[in-house]
Design a protein around this nucleic acid. Structure first.
Lengths: 166, 166
DNA sequence: CTTGGTAAGTAGTGATTCGCAACTTAAATC
DNA sequence: GATTTAAGTTGCGAATCACTACTTACCAAG
C-alpha cells in the first residue's frame, strides 16, 4: 500500500526527517522561494510557478498547517487572501540559500543573475558554510557526533559566561 | 497528463530548481544523510532507512546520474558495490545541516542527541547563517537582488585584489 | 440589481510514482 | 554442488500529480 509512513518516525534522533516532513514535497521549496520574493496571493503563485491549482491549494494548506505560512484575509478585498511567511518560515532562509547556492555552483554552472546581495553595501553574500563555535569554517571531515552529556564548555567569553549564568 | 516538467525549466535565474531537480525527491536527503554517516552499501541503506528496494535502487541511480554519489564495485567482494559521496555530494553538507537545524529548532523541539560537534575541540557547531562579505550575519530583511553588472568591488584586501587580477 | 469579471479553491480524469512482496542474477561461502 | 548474500528487477494495488473544467464568493460597471 502506498500508505506512506511519516519520515520523522524513522530516525528521530535527527531534525532532518522533521524538516522533510514539512518541506520535502515537490513544490514546497519553490513556493517558499516565491514567498520570499514577495509573492503573496494564490493567483500570483499559480502564474509564477505554473503549478496545478489543486496541488497549489494543497501545498499552501500544508505549509499553513505546519506554521510556515500564515493565511490572512485581505481587509480591502475580501476575496483575496495573503499568504505570509511566519517566523518559522523565515527561519528556512539559510537552508534555501544553501540549496540555491549548491544548485548554482554544481548544476550546469549558470552564473545566475540576479545575484543576492547585502542591502547595506550591495556586495554579494558569502557561500553558506558550517562554522565552529569560534567561526572557523568546517568541512565534512571536521565533524563528528557526541552525546549531549559529553559536551563541556571550554574557554567561555565574558558575554557567553554571563549568558550561561542566567 | 502527469508528464512532469523538470523544475529547472521554470525559473532558470535561480539555482534552487536545479538543486530540487537532483535532491527534491522523497528519499534523496535521507539517503544523503546516511551516506554522510558512513552508510555505503545497498543493504545498509535499505535496513537503515526502511525504504522499498525498487525505490532505493531508483534513487541511488539518480544520485549517481547527477554526480552526487559514485558507484564503486568492491575489489574484495565483487557482489558488493560502494556508494560514496563525490565532491559535489559533499558540497550539500551545508544545505543538509541547515535543514536539520531548522527541523530541530522548529519541529516539536527535540533536543536532538547526539549532537554534531567540531572534531577538534568537541564543541557544538553554530547554527548555519547567511553572511555578508565581511562575515556579518544577515537576515531576510537585509537582502536584496542585484544584476551582476551592478556589483562593484569596494575595499578589497590584498589577497582578493591579487586573486581578481588573474 | 443584473451582468461580467476576478480570486480562491474543488472535482473529475488519466498518467506517474510509491510501497510492498516476490523473483532474479551473480558471486561468495559451506 | 547447495546455501547464503548483495544488488537489484518485476508485478500489482494504492496514493499522488497534473491538467482541465467547474464552483463559490466577492467586487465593479451599467
Amino acid at each position: 500500500m502506498g500508505l506512506r509512513e511519516p519520515l520523522k518516525l524513522i530516525a528521530e534522533d535527527c531534525g532532518l526527517p522533521v524538516a522533510l516532513e514539512a518541506m520535502g514535497e515537490r513544490w514546497s521549496f519553490m513556493i517558499l522561494r516565491a514567498a520570499f520574493n514577495r509573492i503573496y496571493h494564490f493567483e500570483e503563485f499559480q502564474s509564477e510557478l505554473g503549478i496545478a491549482r489543486n496541488i497549489l491549494a494543497n501545498r499552501l494548506s500544508r505549509l499553513v498547517d505546519h506554521g510556515i505560512l500564515m493565511r490572512n484575509p485581505c481587509p480591502d478585498d475580501r476575496r483575496k487572501i495573503e499568504y505570509r511567511l511566519t517566523e518559522k518560515g523565515l527561519a528556512l532562509l539559510p537552508a534555501m540559500i544553501a540549496l540555491r547556492q549548491w544548485g548554482e555552483q554544481w548544476g550546469s554552472g549558470i552564473p545566475s543573475t540576479p545575484v543576492l546581495v547585502d542591502e547595506r553595501d550591495h556586495q554579494p553574500i558569502r557561500p553558506v558554510t558550517i562554522r565552529a563555535h569560534d567561526d572557523r569554517v568546517l568541512g565534512a571531515q571536521d565533524l563528528c557526533w557526541r552525546q549531549a552529556e559529553e559536551i563541556r564548555p571550554l574557554s567561555m567569553s565574558r558575554e557567553e559566561e554571563a549568558q550561561a549564568a542566567e
